[in-house]
Nucleic acid binder design. Structure first.
Length: 551
RNA sequence: GCCCCCAUAGCUCAGGGGAUAGAGCGCCGCUCUCCGGAGGCGGGUGCGCAGGUUCGAAUCCUGCUGGGGGCGCCA
């Protein structure tokens, strides 16, 4: 008996009551919530439907519960159903009915938890998109972890997901980057507004080593040459860091290509035709204020150059033309002011903001040292990069730490702390639980405990019931995680599974004691052990964190 | 001035209307001849303040206080 099965049964019972004229049909909530009560005395599962229906049906909640109880009590596997408090219905399920899940999970394997709720949806998820003027820093690393995990979760729900990285290789900042490289190559001081990190001189030297003749060029020609080589090297470096972090994008989209292909021009023309553009002060403006933005935006500056939003306009159009139902953008909090204009772009093309375009804002990551905040600046060159983080704590711990908090919260990273006290990271708690299930498997094999018997009724202790109910929540956790775009729910859930498993392990002897006979209970518990291992492995995979066999 | 996010245990954070608000870390104690002790068990009156909606609010709404970020013909 899983909560899904119970809520289906309740739903059926309610329709019968509607058909019998006992409850008006419009009083039935669209979702029947069946939850695990915090207090064991409140049953294995509980529902609040009676209280939800009561006000709409003008019937006291306990009366509605009275109508439902006989129907629920007659269900196979339900041992009793009780009214409690203001109108909760508490359900008690037989251990046999609850225990069959252990076997089902193991048989489903890596499929357990998956759903087809989002099948048919074609999503474009753009994240990181860090500028190629330096290595990916902590903020970008957070989006890499969260975005990739989100993509995996969407996929687990049946969606088709394209991971995309928008590479801003066009415009003034790239010019500053190029100038900084030239200055470094010539052993001159970093220009004002230039980039000063040590990676600048590394790249400059690397470019020179390959192309010594560049020093003989000058002016724009030289800057252009350094720009081209520098961006290329930065691009490769970023790609490699991401790959080492376990994140591979399906599409690396170059902003510059929108200009070279004429897409920007085309998109601007389109907006003109649609009547969303006007000229003023020698510039071409997008009348975004009439589409909900706080003010109008310049698209083509009075000097004839395109402004940044021109690329964004063309890029959005490109995504839609590539057939994506929904374009998701993950942006840092410092870009939240873009939502208005981006939604206006979406509307201008006749699409619906929030449906065809969805912008997720994540709060900043800040660096802390000994409890004191440290300001990071790419131009000043004191950034902590993705590579630094991975080197300090490893991919698993880094990804887990970045993905276990809501993106609505700012995150403090203390490298010193992470470096010397890696056990602080709950990832080990979860991974250890998984390794433990595997250790039990190895022991089972050497003891000759097979999986040829399974009697779910034997899984009757509290620890077993707790673990089973926790495991049964996995599909719902994934669905919610996808719906709210919140991968951290998976991490938090896994910590609970690990806790339940450890308690089960301590309270219930899985394998027989030395020289004792192998009984059905041992074999049955081995199924439950494996079910826990399956859920932990499936969950960790969605976070991009390894599930080790041994630690 | 306007916009976004945040405020929950000593610390880092979960909790998207339900019953007695949780986890990890840190601290103190306990852990049986037996599957890995990276585990388990026990030890706590913590939802910033004030209103409102509701049978019921940490959760939804309004105001306030405090903190972070943002408001370019930069990208």
């Amino acid at each position: 008996m899983t909560p899904e099965q119970l809520s289906l049964a309740i739903s059926k019972a309610l329709s019968e009551l509607v058909a019998a004229g006992r409850i008006p049909s419009d009083a039935i909530p669209k979702e029947i919530v069946v939850e695990r009560p915090k207090n064991r005395e409140h049953g294995d599962w509980a529902t609040n439907v009676a209280m939800q229906i009561a006000p709409k049906a003008s019937i006291p909640p306990r009366e509605i519960a009275e109508l439902l109880i006989p129907k629920l009590q007659s269900l196979d596997g339900v041992t009793s159903a009780e009214i409690a408090g203001p109108g909760f219905i508490n359900l008690f399920v037989s251990s046999a009915a609850a225990g069959v899940l252990a076997r089902q999970i193991v048989e489903s394997g890596s499929q357990y938890g998956k759903s087809s709720a989002m099948s048919g949806e074609k999503l474009n998820l753009e994240f990181v998109s860090a500028n190629p003027t330096g290595p990916v820093h902590l903020g970008g690393t957070r989006w890499a972890a969260v975005g990739d995990s989100l993509a995996r979760i969407f996929q687990s729900q049946g969606a088709t997901v394209t991971r995309e990285y928008y590479f801003n290789d066009h415009g003034a900042q790239i010019d500053r980057f190029a100038k900084s490289l030239v200055a470094s190559a010539k052993k001159e001081a970093t220009p004002e507004d230039g980039y000063a990190g040590s990676y600048i001189s590394e790249i400059a030297s690397a470019i020179l080593a390959k192309n010594p003749e560049l020093l003989r060029l000058d002016g724009e020609e030289q800057q252009e040459a350094f720009r081209k080589h520098g961006v290329e090297m930065m691009f490769e470096q970023i790609k490699e860091s991401l790959h080492n972090f376990g994140v591979d994008f399906d599409v690396y989209f170059h902003e510059n290509s929108l200009y070279e292909s004429g897409s920007v021009k085309k998109a601007v023309e389109r907006l003109k035709q649609l009547g969303h553009m006007f000229e003023q002060d020698g510039a071409l403006w997008f009348r975004s204020s009439s589409l909900g933005d706080e003010k109008d935006r310049v698209v083509i500056k009075s000097d004839g150059e395109a402004s940044y939003i021109a690329g964004d306009i063309a890029y959005y159009l490109d995504k839609r033309e590539r057939g994506f139902d929904r374009a998701l953008y993950m942006l840092g909090a410092d870009h939240h002011g873009y939502i208005g204009r981006m939604h206006a772009v979406c509307s201008a093309f006749g699409d619906t903001p929030g449906v065809n375009m969805e912008i997720l804002i994540g709060q900043m990551v800040s660096l802390v040292k000994g409890g004191q905040p440290v300001r990071m600046s790419k131009r000043a060159g004191n950034v902590v990069t993705m590579e630094d983080l991975v080197e300090t704590v490893g991919v698993d711990a880094a990804r887990y730490a970045l993905v276990r908090s809501s993106i609505n919260s700012t995150l403090d990273i203390d490298l010193e702390l992470l470096a010397k006290r890696t056990n602080d990271n709950p990832v080990f708690y979860v991974q250890y639980a998984h390794a433990r299930t595997k250790q039990v498997d190895r022991n089972a094999e050497s003891l000759g405990v097979a999986r040829d018997e399974f009697d779910p009724a034997l899984l009757e202790s509290e620890a077993e019931g707790e673990l089973l109910s926790k495991l049964s929540e996995f599909p719902r956790i994934l669905a919610q995680s996808a719906e709210f775009r919140e991968p951290h729910r998976v991490a938090r859930y896994l910590e609970e599974v690990a806790g339940s498993y450890h308690r089960f392990y301590d309270n219930c002897r899985i394998l027989p004691l030395p020289a004792k006979p192998i009984e059905t209970i041992h074999k049955t518990r081995l199924w439950l052990n494996d079910a826990a291992g399956t859920v932990l492995a499936n969950g960790l995979a969605l976070l991009g964190v390894s599930a080790p066999e041994r630690m």
